[in-house]
Design a binder for these strands. Structure first.
Lengths: 207, 207
DNA sequence: TAGATTGTTAATCGATTAACAATC
DNA sequence: TAGATTGTTAATCGATTAACAATC
């Protein structure tokens, strides 16, 4: 069942599985069934089994999934088993919040450089990192092998930052600015758009 | 074409349309075609037409959509044409970032109360609002007719906050904590999960 | 063995896209 | 009128769920 085209929906669920498995592991739970997982995560057990089966046979019939083994496998699939340095541009409240989330991301994926264009931000220390000027972006990305860029600047500046990321050789971008980025198609862009999220929530309010 | 079941995917795109239309409006653009919209938003024009057609006939054949009129209509659909007060719990960096985003949300949807359980946060002023103690949550939500709650506390506290929101009569929740909430099914929960977003991004990195 | 649970196929359901008549 | 573009139907594509043989 290898090297089939995996849908984005599947990939988006893997981190959810991983997070919950980590909680189980912390509680010394040894095995878990798709039934259990589905219950806790509000997902259909068949879907969970199918998602995992895209990548291999990780379970044991009649038993379920070994928690530790499944964690290891999902981390491999998501490439979280290696170091992935991340750069962030925009050291406002949101940028700072994300830097402090480093704890959650664990060691493999880590914001290792923060940039800002505003002179009064440069030099500030966030989570043991100094905020660097934009002029250093390309060099730092190259020297630290940074592969992912996070954009937390205001919307009007987002495209400009994206351009600089692309020129510097970044491979994927997570954009928090409420704006659509134009980038070469080999660059993967994910969009974390909470104003849109909040506005769509209003739709579902009872009259 | 009314009162059909509208899919979540459609509703999630409406704020994207709205945002871009607002930009057009600011530039005094009068009409726009699904073609144009699709180009700018990286979406299929047919999809855009279909999305809008669920809610009415907003365009003119041969012409396109009147920008001002379409803005008005989408705002109605999303219930953004009325006041929707929002409460936020958790005044860390992320909470503060969201409060400052109030500008983007414009006047209709607005964070009007901030809560925290930590004594050294209570009383701090963020964007002209004092951080209130959790003990006041239920009263403030009732008195200010708050309908939406945002959760920006650490994961282990998120369910507890959700419970308090539900008890206080909130109708929808936007959860930023990396945890799955259990709430009654009439409460709508959206999940803004950027650690998951970032982890799924790693999957797409070239080998 | 009996019970539980996987991996996988088939069935269903839903979302996107293409195509085109209607019409501005 | 000719060109452009909608609204909508039909075709395609994709994702979810049900069902069950295989097997621990």
């Amino acid at each position: 069942m290898k090297s089939l085209k995996i849908s984005e929906a599947v990939v988006k669920r893997l981190p959810i599985y991983l997070r919950f498995l980590n909680e189980l592991s912390k509680k010394n739970v040894l095995t878990v069934s798709s039934q259990d997982l589905g219950q806790k995560l509000n997902l259909n057990p068949a879907q969970i089994r199918k998602d995992l089966a895209y990548f291999g046979e990780f379970g044991k019939k009649g038993i379920g999934y070994d928690v530790t083994y499944l964690i290891e496998k999902i981390r491999q699939i998501l490439k979280l088993d290696r170091q992935i340095p991340v750069a962030l541009v925009g050291s406002g409240n949101l940028g700072r919040a994300l830097c402090n989330y480093n704890i959650y991301l664990r060691d493999q994926m880590k914001i290792t450089a923060i940039f800002d264009s505003s002179p009064d931000k440069i030099g500030q220390v966030i989570n043991n990192m100094s905020v660097l000027p934009m002029e250093h972006l390309a060099d730092v990305i190259r020297d630290s092998s940074i592969r992912i860029g996070i954009i937390t600047v205001p919307a009007p500046e987002a495209q400009n930052v994206a351009n600089q990321f692309v020129k510097a050789g970044i491979e994927a971008i997570l954009n928090f600015a409420p704006s659509i980025l134009k980038v070469p198609e080999e660059i993967r862009v994910h969009h974390a758009d909470f104003t849109a999220e909040l506005q769509s929530l209003a739709y579902y309010l009872p009259e």
